[in-house]
């Protein structure tokens, strides 16, 4: 067997084993009633009209918050990264603050954020924060990743600062920006779900908490699975984009 084929076969086998083990644990109630059989849970939630419409409405709300958060967070992150590039004296302070803000737990920022946008706006804001940091770091390091030879050539040829930025720094930052987007996209989904825990009216996070409190284990399990799938899809979509677009800029 070729190594590549062996790798794929083993990978699929590993995933199947995991699903099978969790199915067996659920069917035989080995972990108690809180562990449903995955296939049965998905089937029963999607089979019931009421629960599936509840799930899809929540999914739509979370996707909307994560999407808006991803776009605004990325734009702000990139703008701040660009500001640090344009005004070098600000750079050290911006780097330091961004890493400090990223270290501070969301719970700690919650009162400030709720005071700013209210409980309804929390999920968009936390999604924006989740993706903004990744995009800031990607922009800040990407803009500086210019090769010295190219930079010299631009200077010798008498390029203006604007030409240097548009024709050299920005294109060189593209691979780093795409790398940042892969992190930002899954960060936005996590941020949106967490933000919904702080009083949003609807969304996967809200549905998760309500099914946890009402002991609807199948619903809870399917909602968690949906959130994980959304995060994975966003991540791998960006990885694919990175592969497609990134080649032209390396």
């Amino acid at each position: 067997m070729r190594p590549q084929t062996k790798k794929i076969v083993l990978g699929i086998l590993g995933a199947l084993t995991l699903i099978l083990v969790s199915e067996v644990i659920g069917r035989l109630c080995l972990a108690g009633k809180a562990w449903p059989a995955p296939i049965d849970a998905v089937w029963s939630v999607l089979g019931s009209k009421l629960s599936s419409s509840l799930l899809f409405r929540a999914l739509g709300a979370t996707l909307a918050s994560a999407g808006i958060g991803l776009v605004t967070g990325s734009l702000v992150g990139m703008a701040v990264g660009f500001l640090g590039y344009l005004l070098p004296p600000l750079r050290a302070g911006l780097d330091q603050t961004a890493s400090i803000l990223n270290t501070i737990p969301l719970v700690a920022l919650a009162p400030l954020l709720i005071a700013l946008v209210g409980p309804q706006g929390m999920s968009v804001l936390t999604a924006a924060l989740g993706s903004g940091f990744a995009m800031f770091v990607a922009t800040a390091s990407g803009l500086l990743a210019v090769s010295a030879a190219h930079s010299d050539l631009f200077r010798v040829s008498g390029a203006s600062r604007l030409q240097h930025i548009i024709r050299l720094s920005l294109p060189s930052a593209v691979p780093s920006l795409l790398g940042g987007l892969t992190l930002a996209s899954s960060g936005a989904v996590l941020g949106a779900v967490l933000g919904e825990w702080f009083g949003a009216p609807t969304g996967l996070g809200v549905l998760m908490i309500s099914s946890m409190q009402n002991f609807q284990v199948k619903m809870l399990f399917v909602v968690a699975l949906t959130a994980a799938l959304v995060s994975l899809t966003a991540f791998y979509a960006m990885v694919a984009l990175q592969k497609m677009v990134g080649k032209r800029f390396v």
């Binding site: 083993l10 084993t17 899954s186 968690a224």
Partner: peptide, 21 residues
């Protein structure tokens, strides 16, 4: 072969969001 692909998939799952589960 069995573990690494599954782990890398799990890596993209928001762990903290799984708190209720």
């Amino acid at each position: 072969g069995l573990i690494t692909p599954t782990t890398s998939v799990f890596h993209a799952i928001p762990v903290v969001a799984m708190l209720p589960v």
